[in-house]
Each structure stands twice: as C-alpha cells, then as structure tokens.
Nucleic acid binder design. Sequence first.
DNA 1: GCTCGACTCTAGAACGTTCTAGTTGCATCC
DNA 2: GGATGCAACTAGAACGTTCTAGAGTCGAGC
Lengths: 334, 334
Amino acid sequence: MSAGDRRPTLADVAAEAGVSVALVSIVMREAPGASAATRERVLEVARRLDYQPDNRARLLRSGRSRLLGVVFAVEHPFHDDMLTGLYDAADKIGYDLTLSATTPRRNERTAIAGLLQDRCAALVLLGPQIPAAELATLAARIPVVAMMRGVRQRTVDVVRTDEARGVHLAVDHLVELGHRRIAHVDGGRRMLASAERREGYLEAMRGHGLQAYARVVVGGPGEEDGARAVRRLLDEPPTAVTAFNDLSATGLLDVLRRDGLAVPGDISVVGYDDSSFSRLAHIDLTTVAQDIDTMATLAVARAVDRVDGAAIAHREVVVAPRLVVRGTTGLPAA
Amino acid sequence: MSAGDRRPTLADVAAEAGVSVALVSIVMREAPGASAATRERVLEVARRLDYQPDNRARLLRSGRSRLLGVVFAVEHPFHDDMLTGLYDAADKIGYDLTLSATTPRRNERTAIAGLLQDRCAALVLLGPQIPAAELATLAARIPVVAMMRGVRQRTVDVVRTDEARGVHLAVDHLVELGHRRIAHVDGGRRMLASAERREGYLEAMRGHGLQAYARVVVGGPGEEDGARAVRRLLDEPPTAVTAFNDLSATGLLDVLRRDGLAVPGDISVVGYDDSSFSRLAHIDLTTVAQDIDTMATLAVARAVDRVDGAAIAHREVVVAPRLVVRGTTGLPAA
DNA sequence: GCTCGACTCTAGAACGTTCTAGTTGCATCC
DNA sequence: GGATGCAACTAGAACGTTCTAGAGTCGAGC
C-alpha cells in the first residue's frame, strides 16, 4: 500500500535479469562461478530494483555468522571509545558487530539474552558485572571474551589492562619529578580493579625505596569519594596523590583548589582512565590511559580464534597502559 | 567436537517431548492453542535442553520484525543517555532495539547500511549528519525518525528540542537574577542548532526589552571556540553569558577563571546540553537539559506508528527543554 | 446417533537466503 | 571422434522458525 510494497528479494532480481536465484546469490556475495558479463548485468538489475540482501536469511542459511555480540554500558563513556576500537578490529577481519547496551534500567542478563537470540558467534563483554560462575555457564554455550575485568575461570577469555603497572607508571613519573611523599586514594572495597591498583602503588613505592612514605586512604569510584578522601589527607598533606580513577581525582582537585592549594604547585594529582573530561582545559588531568586499540584488536582476535576452534592455552591477555602527562603534575614544592 | 555440538532447535525439543514442532513453537511464543499440561512439559524439556529461540529464523518467517534500528555516535555521551530512554520506551511496547554506532572511522552510511540488512522495521537516527536529500531517499524505503535535528522533508519524522526555547529559558533565568548585559556565544556557522539558539537568545532579549544590550559573538562547538570567543568579549565584559553548548561554556569558564574573574561573582555562565561533565563539582554548570525520556518515548511511538501505517499529518514534534540551575549563575556584580 | 463446536494438536508450506549436486555447452586431448 | 575437463549456470534441498489449513477427540445438544 504505502511506499514499498515489499522489499525485493533474490528471486525478484533473478526474474528481472532472466537468471536463476542461485546465480544472483553467487554474484551478490562475490563468489566464483559467474561470468563477468552476467555479473555486470545482475548487479545492474540489483541496483535498479534497490535490492538489499537480507542478513537474517543469509545468516540463517550459512551457519557461521561472522557476527560478534558486544555488551557495553551506556554509563561508561570509556566503553564508547572501546566500541570504536572494536568496530575497527572486527571490520579488518570481515566480522560484524552487534551491540547490546546495559542501562540503569536494563541489566546485563537482558543484554546478553538479546545477543544470544541473535545467534552471534561469540560474545565480547565490556567490564561485565555478573558473577564469575554465571560467566562460566555462559561460556559453555558460546565463546566469551571479558574485557577490563579479571575472571578466574578457565573457560572465559580475558583481555585487560595491567592495572598495577598503570599506577606504577604514575608513581615513577612523580618520583622522577622529585616527589617522595606520594599518597594513594584507592577505589574502596567494591571496585574490581581497586586492589590491583593499590598493590601497584605499594609495589612502586617499595621499588623506589619509599615504603616509609607510602600512605593509602580509602576512597571510592565517585567524585565525592575523592573529595572525602583528600580531606582526611590534608592534616599532613603529601606532595602528590595518585587517585583510583579520574572521577575521584576530579573530586580531589576540587577540594584542593577550594582550599586554596595550587595544583600542581602545592600538590600533584594523577588520575586513571583518561576519561574524556580529563582532557578539558579546565581539568587537564595527568592520567593513565588504557591501550584501547591493542585491547580491541586482541579481544576480537581471541573471540574469532575461539569461534574457529583454535586451541589457545592461556586465557588471559594483559595489556600495558601508558601515562598521559598533562597539567596536574609538576615539580614538588620546595 | 567442542562445548555444544549444535544449538538445540525446535525440532530437538519437539522430538524429546514427543510432540510436533508447531506445538513447541506455540508454547515458546506463548500463543493460544496448547493445553496447560503439554505447555508445562514442553517448557521443562526446553529448559533441560537449554533451548534458545533463533531470532533470525523467527524474524525471517514472521515478516514484521518488532525491531527498531538505532544509529548513534560514540563521540556523543548524550547519545548514550538517549539510548537509555529509547530502550525503556521500546521495551514498554514490546519492541526490540538494534544498535549501530558511528565512530571517527565508521560513517553514518555504513551504520545505516548494516541496519537495513538486518531488516529492522524502522530507523531512529540520533543527530543524523547526512544530507536531507539522502534522508529522503532512505525514508522512501523504510520509516525514518530523525532526532535532534530539524529536517525539512515531508517524508521523514523529526523529534527534536525547541532550541530557541532553551536559550530563552536561560535568558529568563539571568534576567530574573537581575542581569541586563547578557551576551551570547554562538555555535558558529556549521552547527545545525546554532542559528535557532541564537534566534532564541535575540528574541528573549527583545522580549525583556533588552535589545540594546544584546551581543552575539561567533563561537563554535568546542572548548577552544568558547575560550576564543570570551577573550573577544572581555574588552567590555557583560555580567552574564549564554554559550552554544557545555563544551564551549567550559572553555569560557576556564579563561574567565584564569583571568581572575569569579564565576558567578563577576560573571554568570549558562551552557546547553546538560552533558555529564557539567555535573562535576568542579564545573557545576547551569545548563539547559533536553527532555530525554519524553523525546525517546515520542520517537519510538512515531516509528511504530509509521510501521503500522498510521496516517499522521504532522511530521515534526518539538519538545520543550528545561533549565538546570547549578553553580555558575548568580546575582550580577553590584 | 448424529452434528456441532471447542479444543488440542499436526503436516507441510513459506520466509530469503546458501549450498550441494548436478546439467549444459564447448574447447581440448589423445 | 569419443572421453575429459572446465566454465557457466540451475534445480532443489536446507537453515529454524511461523503460519495456514486441517485432523482428531470429546462432550453437549437435539
């Protein structure tokens, strides 16, 4: 009735071009078995009829799907960056991505269920929150790659950043600038990476022979957590602070500046994550960045390997982060 | 060979339960036509075999797809917020969402092509960048709802915010606080909403009889644009500024504070978009927020109406924004 | 005892592709 | 001049569902 009565199919193109359906199929997916002349003619007809292949039917018939399901959280701007990398990586090896988001009102289980019904070949989960056991049962059904979360399950693959190394880099940088009294505001008990980053901090301090100066304050993932933590720190202020993440660092910065302390003049601050806002001139935060492209490439490669049934012994890939030096770190006060 | 040889199908469940495939289908989609007893039994078998319906086959067979394709940009954190609303709205009326992102290296055309192949029933485009003509040809093929962009094409639906009204609200707020010398830093020539917001500003100034004080400075969408514009403003500083967007406002704030001007003591600033970073204690920006839930609900409803072939005369829905008052606006300096 | 309707269930076609196993035509080889 | 090979093409099954049409069963109504 309205615009297009029905979308054209292979059969329509075949009829119009005077060839068989199978031949049109061959032409459309650029498979061998058609002469240049007919190829040309079929393509012309397809274009004229505005033919669009039906992915559903295509995937249904041809078993393997060359489709990777990705679960990401709308709350994490960082996940958007990772999507960019994943699209690139998948594209490069001829795979497609199908996305499913978690939102404050749409949980991970729902997001995963949707992808399972779409019959993607493997799942890539960005910072999955569901219990490890659940990941394991899921992995029994379909290859699963978890990113940015360590999972001690021998059936799920993991691609993550070397968290400890990240804070290590931050401490190295500060020490190099001449800092000694460096404190760490951690991510609290509930955050997965918190313990690793704290350990990285302690280890780095020991490595520089500064264990006597080491000081860890309990914080959390939010802005307020950083603000609260730094107030406790100010009785005997260090010359530099490494924070659990950028948000926490921002809260911290805010309190410092309100108290009239100059950053980095009086105190240097390092965040973690290289969140987009840390680039704002206003904040200009020195921070630790994950290697997005490398991680994305590895995750996709690993997923595809599993789909192809490759036998890979090690399940976990740990990628080194890098330090992004901006304006919140400098020489310590004299 | 590996984990699961093959995912179970309706036929497997049917065989195991000793009934026909059709009956299992009936049970799985909770259609009428099966007794409570068999329903129970079939479900039990399905659960035992870990049966998952195959969406592809399902959609292929049952023509209509109850599937909405959404194109969003990873660069826009705001789009993530909108996704949240869209998921809610779609969920409420039994529709599914399939997402396709644009990234710095994946353009809108590619994103749309993917969705077309997935045979979704309609397309929802967040802030589409492609030419209106292209949108029109697309709309000839499938219902299209464009969000956050005005399109003068009688074949595509539009759900957008009343941009002029947003700046109007900002000016009203400032005038109410006692400001008169209120300037506007616009979004430059290339931004779609720029002209509307500028008009809204001028109209509001006129409405308050302040046309003599009206002053528009050419800016842009970025932080640097705001910074550059405000420097030009400082020869004869106003007591308040409305900026094209939050990013521009942030650049502006940064310059002001570096110049030793207090915000809002010496000068008040209003942004636009309610970006997530505008909530940071550090920035705490008064801004104009779009009504995400309303817009999402309207967009989904409109898309579904078109799918159902409803005849709706007006193609454009304009939603009122609201002002979010935070810490960058206050009484003018005495 | 026959028909009717309601209910439960089933066979088989259909959706739009890809894949397998051909068939045809034509040039090549001994 | 008959076998062989190859390129170009085709018929029809298959993928896992849903849908249409109809078959069987049973109790009620006359």
